[in-house]
Design a protein around this nucleic acid. Structure first.
Lengths: 222, 222, 222, 222
DNA sequence: GATGAATGAGTCTTCATTCAT
DNA sequence: TATGAATGAAGACTCATTCAT
């Protein structure tokens, strides 16, 4: 028998597996996604393993085949469902021919696109705020993996602009963090609004954000 | 000493109330504060009424003399411990002689001061993000009472600047929200960092924020 | 000061007492009555002392001035609110000139009247059935005080009839109990029917009961 | 022995179900019976779910696998443990050759037998009297299902007697109810007497009851 | 006497986790 | 592997009882 039993783990599903084995190989992902959705709806403590199971189409016991306990399940949800906003290496190279203004615009567009389209990124922020105190490693891990790269990349764009003589840095520190802030505000707005009707209209909001950044960093023309 | 029979407990007794009555008058506040601290540490669901009671120096039953149930207790914590950042009517009048630049600076200083000194304001944000979905009214109420006035006031400062010819508004909308964003970012940072060692140094951060605002709204000198 | 303080107990209120003292002298009765009503509505276990107090127009603590605890209160309700159906000594003497048929009729009329008018008698039956197992003395005491005299009196009427040659006793035993049974049935009916619309019409019911008795005990005319 | 793997517990395992499935199939009945006994001993409010569980040989949690809550458990006890006294259709047919006198006797014998042997029937009466006010549907449902058929059947016996010229109906209404009353009295007696020593001796009691009925309905011979 | 704030034992109910099948 | 019956620790909430005022 080829490639069937005991073929599990964080596996990229290959074409060898039969449908049952395929199913099995996907289980962890399915459970993670189901858990994510339940955690989003009710928060960590109020989420019941049984509901996660039901949503994943399995039963309670099965959860425990793949995850030690509820705590580990939660940590894995946060740790494994996050997606980096950028493929760090590619972004700058891929767009090196662009002007710095365009890079800023592209950065913002990509950031808002990611936040808006992908519920994981913003909801995991909710998890960290809500339950981070109970999972201390999670917060710093997540910051290092997802936030810091973002700030670094924005910094590099700014520095590129400085080198090219179109931007100027006028402050001691925290510039990237401050200039990106409106995106966080938008994310929080999304987390807080039950119906999205009250949210700012995104294109306008991005425009204003972009203008703010440009007016802030643009080098005063001599 | 007048009218202080049998004063006992850690309470300073005043002349109007017997110790019993006094305690009763203070209990709700004491319980709210204790509840606040527990909710901060563990989140709504994971907080046990008994722990709130212990922290308030009473027993389970006493909580229920003052609050219908855990849910109401939570709502009251959010609803009654919030303090507005500004006394809206006074701020502008009191400082009408100031320049608009100074007003912006004063606004930011006050805002950060409030956020930093007063744990209620930022922690209640945590509650809203963590459990707002279970308490829908809470979110909108809180927004109307505390956030909207802030945005409005900042708007008025900007408009004053425009009238006086020192500021210019260059964007369609959401300007105040975007310009204030860094303060929210700082609040979230505080919520996420277990030890405050990793936080940005506040004076520098405020400076950068202030500079960002000024560069953004300053009217291009002719 | 005349006849005021400490004048309480199961006292027949005399004219000496001032209004406050009067109040006090009546308290136990008022509490008993309030307790009775609450016990009727909710049953022993589900009745809360505080509700009894509220209904009696006093506060929790006051109940404990007059009754040791909830159990004693309940026992006193059952023990002190029952009223005998007949003044045993008077009934037969007062009506000695009546025919035996008339006595039977009078007996039944009085019995149903009592049961119908006075909620105590039938509701205490409910207490005994519901909670008698927890208060063993109560049941036998009540039986001896209220049921046995009833049976005895009916027996005496029957025997009078036999002596006068109009009734005949045709059975070994339990005759009175069996002949009175329909009254108990009616009482139970009242206890069970939420709205009294479904109850038998009382005059007709009594007639039928009376006829049953007469046909049963009437001596076969020679 | 066939198909009885790992049989354990006090249960006789049959061949169709595994021990696990079997237990599950039997659990509800076992719990109902245990609950019945506890409710009988203490009454609805004073009965603790944990005691029911212990008596059923399971733990608290298990109760909630089969019943929503205590209230539903109680309703099911009342609703599912009652047994009709007669198989309505069969009784009259099966005994059509009997004389009406014999039918009456048979009716009474069956009724008392049922009441005496089967604790459910009389104890459920206790539940209805004690807690019926909190479960209004229960009372009327029970009356329709168990009491009304009884009265109807007795009516039919009487009418048969009338048709055959041996009985006469001499009253406007409620005759069956009144003639059956002594059985209710006996049931109440059983509910009230802690030890059954004080109860009437059943055979004599039934005799007297029977005589009462016969003297009441027998047609005066011409 | 009367009050009612405070207590804390007691009870229902939930749910993470285990384990026999 | 997968199931889901069973467990029992834990937590919200109630209420008889006490006692300082």
């Amino acid at each position: 028998m080829v490639g069937t039993k005991h073929a599990r783990g964080p596996v990229v599903v290959d074409n060898e597996l039969g449908p049952r084995a395929l199913r099995k190989a996907q289980r962890p992902q399915e459970i993670l996604q189901a858990a994510f959705e339940e955690f989003v709806e009710r928060g960590y403590t109020a989420t019941r393993i049984e509901d996660v199971a039901a949503r994943a189409g399995v039963t309670k016991g099965t959860i425990y085949l793949y995850f030690q306990n509820k705590e580990e399940l939660f940590q894995d949800v946060v740790g494994k469902l996050s997606q980096p906003v950028f493929d760090e290496n590619q972004f700058l190279e891929q767009h090196q021919h662009r002007s710095c203004n365009e890079l800023v615009r592209l950065f913002l567009d990509t950031l808002y696109e990611h936040m808006t389209v992908n519920p994981h990124s913003r909801e995991i922020l909710r998890f960290l705020i809500a339950d981070g105190r109970s999972f201390p490693t999670l917060v710093s891990t997540h910051f290092d993996q997802f936030v810091k790269p973002l700030l670094t990349m924005f910094d590099r764009i700014l520095q590129k602009g400085v080198r090219e003589g179109v931007f100027e840095i006028w402050a001691e520190d925290h510039i990237s963090q401050i200039l990106i802030s409106p995106a966080l505000t938008y994310a929080i707005d999304m987390l807080l609004s039950a119906d999205n009707t009250k949210l700012p209209e995104l294109p306008i909001y991005i425009n204003t954000h972009y203008e703010m950044v440009m007016r802030t960093v643009r080098k005063a023309s001599v």
